[in-house]
Design a protein around this nucleic acid. Structure first.
Length: 272
DNA sequence: GATACTGTTATCAC
DNA sequence: GGTGATAACAGTAT
């Protein structure tokens, strides 16, 4: 469940469930998920959850001292029950709350990571701007794109310029901008970039409003049942007619990721 | 059964 | 130093 809108949805849901709770105890079943697990337990125990936030695709759980930073990668999820035992498969970390409830982190592929840090901006300094940062402008994008030799999809997937987009929303942004994902970003016109910039904001805002997307997912835990999958115009629509021109959507591979394109609406330039 | 995919990203080689 | 491929893992689809 992991692009920005899904993570934002998790954060908002967690906020209603664990804000102001004290973490009484922690059990780490899979040490590889947690950075320095010895210190981790010590630094989390008896801390009050002061605030929930997000940076890119990272969940921030702000404690009295330090911040618990969680990345759920491909399939991480949280759920709550009343058992401190490992009752479900693939539960790797469990937090006992003061009121007796237990927050479990479950992750079938064990890709997720969590850590406690003093300085969040230092720990996540590799991330680019948030989509709603006032500094995120077409000019900002064009200055960086001018110097990059990457294709559009790889550029948008990398988190160092703008953070939060992943495979679904990059496909949707490219389609709505009428740009082929293989287009070299240094060949884009400023008008292309203006459109792209607007579509990034539009798509992410809409997806957040709808609680993110739920595709290919088992029925979920904790409010992750988004509705944006109903608004998808190319992603997962292989063989189906383009909403603009009825040309069948094709599936290809760009930047090593499954990629959906309307070859009519998203013309590939000669130079690519 | 193989084999190929999968909403991610740290790390490696070039 | 920027870029593209690969690995980490487990499950599902073809």
């Amino acid at each position: 469940m992991p692009e920005l809108p899904e993570v934002e949805t998790v954060v908002r849901t967690l906020e209603t469930l664990i804000l102001n709770q004290t973490i009484s105890d922690v059990m780490i079943h899979t040490p590889s998920i947690v950075y320095h697990d010895l210190l981790f337990k010590h630094r989390v125990t008896n801390q009050v959850i002061q605030r929930l936030s997000r940076r890119g695709k990272y969940i921030l759980i702000i404690l009295d001292e330090g911040t618990l930073v969680v990345h759920i990668r491909m399939e991480g999820r949280f759920f709550i029950n009343h058992s401190f035992e490992q009752t479900h498969k693939h539960v790797h970390v469990s937090f006992l709350l003061q009121d007796g409830r237990v927050l479990h982190y479950q992750d079938t592929r064990k890709f997720g990571r969590m850590m406690v840090v003093e300085d969040v901006s230092k720990a996540l300094s590799h991330l680019g701007l948030e989509y709603d940062d006032p500094h995120f402008t077409p000019l900002y994008l064009s200055e960086i794109m001018r110097k990059s030799h990457r294709n559009l999809k790889a550029f948008l997937l990398s988190q160092g310029v703008i953070t939060g987009l992943g495979n679904i929303y990059v496909d949707e942004v490219c389609f709505r901008s009428k740009l082929h994902p293989l287009t070299k970003v240094n060949t884009l016109s400023f008008q292309d970039i203006v459109t792209l910039h607007a579509m990034i904001i539009l798509v992410l805002n809409q997806a957040i409003e709808l609680g993110g997307s739920s595709i290919r997912t088992y029925t979920n835990a904790m409010g992750i049942d988004g509705l944006f999958q109903l608004q998808l115009q190319v992603h997962m629509r292989q063989g189906q007619p383009c909403v603009n021109c009825s040309t069948p959507i094709i599936k290809t591979v760009v930047a090593n990721r499954g990629t959906y394109v309307c070859t009519q609406c998203q013309k590939q330039l000669e130079s690519d």
